[in-house]
Design a protein around this nucleic acid. Structure first.
Length: 429
RNA sequence: GAGACCGUGGUGUAAUAGUAGCACAAAGACCUGUGGAGUCUUUAGUACGGAUGCAAGUUCCGUCGGCCUCCCCA
């Protein structure tokens, strides 16, 4: 082979068969649990009108401002590779008049998303997300149910020590007031903030809250908190969400500094992290999942005034966490039966037999192109099958077949037409 | 967008500036009647471009990638 000329674009990756096992495991888990809780699958295009995102996510957010892949089509449309999943689904909800369907309406999705960022641990330019969205219901039970479904999924994927961080960031009634309060507080302590945060005071004071700079944290720790300034509606809503979470015994932690980077959120916001009770290797906590309520989004995108709530989980991050935790490497389930053949008549009969196995829904492997029995047994051994069927010239002529137990090396000769029922029985043991 | 470190066959690793080697993996043969082993053979590499120098995997510069941090987020 000569020099490799092409390689995957920066920050993107091929999902090779060995990696695919992890995706499949996660997919199966999210699919069955989502379905159980009444979510329906939805897929939207990989690209959308760029304005869908600039309007929904916010024109001044990093995601839209710096990280979106935008291009112009031949027809002149300005499209963007989707950087997140909520806005497109809201668009679809509006476009198809789904507010005329019985509400609430619940969706789940699983697919690739794109952000032009500098890649690093658990962060890619093409990454996969699983997400849930609920439209048309403002009851706090929805917020709690959503958190519970995500929690159940992560539990199903064997996550332990999960902590849900929650906060309420208010709505259009109370947030503007709080923003003013916060920025005037911050302004009086401007000199003790990091330079970046000093700039944020004016247009996005909320972001100062989750700055990691020690100076800012100090100032923030004495700052007024949103939860103390919620309007009555938001306050009640949040209180009920917490009550429901208590009811289902989900471990949560109030984090008054939790704000999200997307503009469309209102009221409840949440993030899931895995609590690494400070092991010797002080791993940074990685956000596995994030979401919240976005009651104003549908209207903002031109629909009716429909409340909604949702969240999304980063598949690659889940996989990293699983790999950190489990030594054993996941692999796709391999067949437990191998068919070895010898001679041209046996080859022909093998083709027929394989088809019978397929119809009987039994996974069977083979290597028809190999002639040496030794080679075939070696291959079957490497695959780790339980039984190898040997169809040689003698057997092919007399209508028999050998079943070899690979563990005990014992073998028996049976009638060819009986082999499937016999194998079925054996596999059940 | 800023910064740190790194880049040798498919993988893992060697090579004071002086013959790019080893192991594993893979393919084939022994082997068309019985696997886990063996023997033999084969495949395959200094990311790319430039500079210095008799000589560069090794030094220098640039590019491209990887990885990690900041930022932000899933």
């Amino acid at each position: 082979m000569k020099k490799v000329k092409f390689q995957v674009p920066t920050g993107m990756h091929d999902i090779l068969p060995s990696e695919e096992a992890y995706f499949q495991k996660i997919y199966k888990s999210v699919e069955s649990i989502s379905k159980f809780y009444g979510f329906q699958k939805i897929d939207t295009p990989i690209v959308e009108d760029a304005e869908v995102f600039s309007k929904a996510v916010g024109i001044s957010t990093d995601i839209v401002e710096k990280e979106m892949y935008v291009f112009k089509t031949k027809g002149g449309d300005v499209l963007a590779l989707r950087p997140e999943g909520t806005a497109p689904i809201a668009r679809s909800y509006i476009e198809h008049g789904m507010f005329n369907l019985p509400q609430p309406i619940k969706f789940w999705y699983f697919g690739p998303f794109f952000r032009h960022e500098r890649p690093q641990a658990g962060r890619f330019r093409q990454f996969w997300q699983f997400g849930l969205e609920v439209f048309g219901e403002d009851s706090p039970i929805i917020d709690a149910e959503l958190i519970q479904v995500f929690y159940t999924i992560l539990k199903d994927l064997k996550f332990k020590n999960l902590i849900v961080e929650v906060n309420s960031i208010g709505d259009s009634q109370c947030r503007p007031y709080y923003k003013k309060l916060l920025s005037s507080y911050l302004r009086t302590h401007q000199h003790s903030l990091c330079p970046k945060c000093q700039k944020k005071i004016k247009d996005n004071p909320l972001r100062v809250l989750d700055c990691k700079d020690d100076r800012c944290r100090d100032v923030v720790s004495r700052a007024p908190q949103m939860i103390d300034h919620l309007c009555e509606g938001c306050h009640n809503h949040f209180r009920q969400v917490l009550e429901f979470l208590d009811g289902v015994e989900i471990p949560y932690r109030l984090n008054p500094y939790l704000v999200r980077g997307l503009d469309y959120y209102t009221r409840t916001v949440f993030e899931f992290i895995e609590d690494k009770h400070s092991d010797e290797n002080n791993e940074r906590k990685m956000e596995l999942l994030g979401g919240g309520r976005y009651d104003a989004l549908v209207k903002l995108l031109g629909g009716k005034d429909v409340p909604a709530c949702g969240g999304a989980m980063g598949i690659e991050r889940i996989i990293i966490a699983i790999k950190n935790r489990e030594k054993e490497v996941l692999s796709e389930t391999s067949p437990r039966i191998f068919l070895a053949q010898l001679g041209s008549l046996a080859k022909i009969k093998s083709l027929k037999l394989l088809e019978e196995f397929r119809k009987a829904n039994i996974n069977i492997s083979q290597s028809l192109s190999k002639n040496s029995l030794k080679t075939q047994l070696r291959i079957s051994d490497k695959m780790g099958v339980d039984y190898t069927l040997i169809l040689g010239q003698k057997e092919a002529i007399s209508g028999m077949i050998i079943i070899r137990n690979m563990k005990t090396s014992k073998q028996e000769t049976v009638l060819l037409e009986n082999v499937i029922p016999i194998i079925k029985k054996r596999l059940k043991k």
